[in-house]
Nucleic acid binder design. Structure first.
Lengths: 355, 355
DNA sequence: CGCCATTTTGCAAGCGTGTGCAAAACTTTC
DNA sequence: GAAAGTTTTGCACACGCTTGCAAAATGGCG
């Protein structure tokens, strides 16, 4: 065990380096010395699959325990080709769906022996770029991008530095990343037929103005499916994909001349906003006067004030697919296309059918 | 620029090491060579405050740009006493309040030039311990614990390895960490007087069975304040601090003989559950028949289905305090005691007064 | 016991960086 | 133009670890 000198600059003209003997760290050398073996033996003891005799391993482990030794991953990452770090790039990560995904990813990564670094891409003021570069500096093995925000240049930057990349619900046309997407089109079709079976005829689609591919896919799928049945759809796009936007859209729709009797909201949060506007400001009863479907199946959808019928994000599957590709390195498959089943609650009239 | 050899073991009896020339990394040496200077010069160029002539700096920067050089933080962390890594220890991080806190912390840490590692402490099956050790391996400069779960032993482990520690709403009696707490007692007192002013007399407190100090402080404060006014409080503790528990408690309270006309819920989520039970299962009107106050002021509290009057967590202040202590190293102050003001919405009768 | 095959071990050379030290280059002053 | 002062530079060691290689130890077998 060796005391490490920490240097502290004084502010006077002459710069004096002071030794503050306050931090103690244990290195493999210390353990080796105590166990009476070479440093290599210590290293091998902590390297799965390396060749060490049982006796040596025991002695090393004992010494390590006694001294409180931890392998220094920074140093290990320097030698090995992998650092064990996986970087999660997220914007608006306090959104229920995103938060759930981050939690699940982090948990599963931990089980796989990886550690997750969190990058927040909220502001586009350059701090994002800084932070991402920061990650590159840590030689992350991989990045998982759940955010709509960071642009292709960044994806490319990560790729170039040798990272594996997983894109969740994005579609950057870059060769290399593993893509996970949902069958948004199918879901939209299911929504339309559910509305029709409930006897709805004046359909509307509430979208944000963000224009993310997956959001647009839902919109286009819904419009197309409705057209197949000879119905038009009122499409409204507004603001961000949040509660407040849904509320605004609700006000627009229900103060119009031909208010809809069924709305597919691109997102649960927007559905809540729209429902609240419809109920509390326009006296609509749900599902009697109005049917609503959302997307994501966040926790709040189960709350009895909403009881929202919605498509559920297969979070577990998304996570499993991501980690499997990252860890097991099955570089053959380049994308996964997952199904989002409809969860029936109380915002569509009539009985459920398999959909 | 040097090609790095990546070793891949084949599965045949004889282990053959194959060279896959696929990853390119740029080191300071490469940059030095190209710029025609020593490696030290490169290092100093990327070290703020180091002594380099303007001319050299220019040449280095140019070469670095051309080659796409990034300082390797792993190596830097090895030399310097600090790694730039801050570890966030969180359980149930998809809970609205926690998610918001994590987002804010991450964002602010980024601005301070730090990077955050996320540790999930949900299961107590040992994976937590593994993950935390993992972090120690990365020589994190600091840890911020927002979780109720990890026990004192872990806190101590982090401290011993030289980390700075911030405890948010916890109270491990260990010397060293920086503690941030709210004036839960004051809030409880404010709640009581708000209820009294609204004419409520049958008070109840809805708590979880978790028993976290801050939650207990709210309960005790509420009971004490009520007693000062000569009132008893029905206290119910159940389950986790979540929606479902609030609902269960609601059912218990309103199917009892003396149902309350005012409930202080230890947490917004529980308040929602309780409100939903009261309204949809017992036909209570809020705030006419029942007044409710929550704690946290999460996003959902502003939704018009709830419009919950609640105490707001001063997230920004919490974050500012944490980061300031971590970064500027003001080791003098050992704790912060923050105020949680009441946000008036529509779950308490009558007009607002300053409280 | 001696020979060969196998496992275990220590040595030493890296990995990419920071930084004290002394030499070199430059600047100022007389 | 030389001496003294200041800034810049390169060398070389350190950080804590992994791992190829060859030497040492171990085991098997006749």
């Amino acid at each position: 065990m060796r005391r490490r000198a920490i240097a502290c600059k004084l502010r006077r003209r002459t710069e004096i380096w002071v030794l503050c003997l306050n931090k103690t760290f244990v290195s493999a050398d210390d353990v080796a010395k105590r166990a009476g073996v070479s440093r290599s033996a210590v290293s091998r003891t902590f390297t799965p699959g390396a060749s060490v005799s049982e006796e040596t391993r025991q002695r090393v482990m004992q010494a390590a325990e006694a001294l409180g030794y931890h392998v220094n991953q920074l140093a290990r990452g320097l030698m090995r080709s992998e650092s064990g770090i996986v970087c999660l790039v997220v914007s608006e990560m306090d959104t229920p769906y995103r938060a759930r995904l981050v939690r699940a990813l982090t948990h599963e990564l931990q089980l796989a022996g990886k550690i997750s670094m969190l990058i927040n891409t909220d502001r586009s003021d350059g701090s994002v770029d800084t932070a991402l570069r920061q990650t590159l500096h840590y030689r992350a093995d991989a990045s998982i991008l759940l955010s709509g925000l960071p642009d292709k240049a960044i994806t490319k930057l990560c790729l170039d530095s040798g990272q594996r990349i997983v894109l969740i619900n994005r579609d950057d046309e870059i060769e290399g990343p593993f893509r996970i997407n949902l069958d948004d089109g199918v879901a939209a079709r299911v929504a339309v037929s559910a509305f029709l079976r409930a006897g709805c005829r004046r359909l509307a689609f509430a979208n944000s103005a963000v224009g993310t591919p997956s959001l647009m896919a839902r919109e286009q799928g819904f419009v197309a499916a409705a057209r197949d049945f000879g119905l038009d759809v009122t499409v409204v796009r507004h603001g961000n994909t949040v509660y407040e936007s849904g509320r605004t859209i609700g006000r627009t729709l229900f103060s119009g001349l031909e208010p809809p009797d069924a709305v597919f909201c691109v997102n649960d949060l927007m559905a809540f906003g729209l429902m609240d506007a419809a109920r509390h400001e326009f006296g609509r009863r749900i599902p009697d006067d109005l049917c609503v479907v959302g997307f994501d199946d966040i926790e709040q959808s189960g709350w009895s004030s909403y009881a929202l019928t919605t498509f559920t994000q297969p979070v577990d599957e998304i996570v499993r697919n991501s980690i499997a590709w990252l860890v097991n390195g099955d570089a053959s498959s380049r994308s996964a296309f997952l199904h989002a089943p409809l969860i029936w609650r109380k915002t569509i009239r009539g009985t459920r059918r398999n959909g």
